[in-house]
């Protein structure tokens, strides 16, 4: 039976889709059958980040409405063998997501895949609630910034009340914190919240710290999740994230500024 992991945040634009894409890719690359689902009906992005936007025939809502079956809608990734994507609809909106519809699809996916990653939309309405509803675990993506932390706290509250596990008194959802867009120099100077501030405010286990990196934007433009860019600091941090999730005890890298070499200093970088 597969594990359902929701990637959520509350706040928009913090890196949920970036994280979903890289995390799913990483898990698949480690040998696990993984599917990543875009729950942002009407504002779909996952297909762009994954680079499969030109191969979308049927989507999540088509399957809910029984206009297509799951196999017709799932897109196999061309680069990573064990990775599949279930895109969202662009023409409809979140009202199209029904509890029975979503539940049925998630159950079907749990039988075929080891990991079902749900890329949640921003906010706390229907789309976000449906994305977290059937989750066994949650990754909360947070920027080191006050409004993002406040919204993540709200989402954490909803994870312990609006999910099937919470409502049926099941084992609580395992929560993981991923801090994205972390800039060590700004954290040092006090402009950004520090990691200690964030973990103190949210009180959940830190899974990974992803540094701010220009490679994230480049990655989404070329349609390859940033974890595939082995030179990028963000990509490497996502690699660590997946390994840490799977049980390896890795220290957090990229918490401090890279030391400038002699050449860099001579050139004034």
């Amino acid at each position: 039976m597969g594990k359902v992991i929701v990637v959520t945040s509350g706040k928009g634009g913090v890196g949920k889709t970036t994280t979903s894409a890289s995390f799913a890719t990483g898990l698949a690359a480690q040998g696990h059958e993984t599917v990543v689902i875009d729950f942002d009906v009407g504002l779909r992005n996952l297909d762009l980040i994954m680079g499969c936007e030109r191969r979308v025939v049927y989507d999540f809502v088509n399957v809910i409405n029984k206009e297509a079956n799951l196999n017709q809608a799932l897109i196999r990734d061309k680069r990573v063998e064990k990775l599949s994507i279930l895109p969202a609809s662009q023409t409809r909106d979140k009202e199209a997501l029904t509890e029975e519809g979503v539940s049925g699809i998630i159950n079907e996916l749990k039988e075929k895949f080891d990991y079902v990653i749900c890329d949640s939309p921003a906010g706390i309405e229907q789309g976000a609630v449906m994305a977290m509803r059937f989750a066994d675990e949650a990754i909360i993506v947070t920027n080191p910034e006050v409004s993002s932390v406040r919204d993540s706290d709200r989402i954490l509250g909803m994870l312990s009340s609006k999910t099937v596990r919470a409502e049926t008194g099941g084992e609580p959802i395992k929560e993981h914190l991923v801090i994205t867009r972390f800039n060590p120099s700004r954290a040092d100077s006090g402009e950004m919240l520090s990691i200690e501030d964030i973990t103190d405010l949210l009180a959940i286990r830190l899974l990974a710290v992803i540094p701010e990196s220009e490679s994230v934007l480049s990655a989404s433009n070329i349609g390859a999740p940033v974890i595939m860019d082995k030179d990028s600091r963000a990509g490497q941090a996502y690699e660590d994230c997946v390994k840490r999730y799977l049980g390896e005890d890795l220290p957090h890298r990229f918490l401090a500024l890279p030391k400038k070499g002699l050449i860099d200093r001579l050139l004034g970088r």
């Binding site: 406040r150 919204d151 706290d153 709200r154 954490l156 509250g157 909803m158 312990s160 009340s161 405010l201 949210l202 009180a203």
Partner: peptide, 25 residues
């Protein structure tokens, strides 16, 4: 457990004790 933003805890017949933090909101 930590009281999350948006949560409301009530104790209408006595004391309310939280052995954790209560978040903003």
């Amino acid at each position: 457990r930590t009281v999350r933003s948006g949560q409301k805890l009530t104790a209408m017949d006595g004391d309310l004790t939280v052995v954790a933090s209560a978040g903003a909101g």
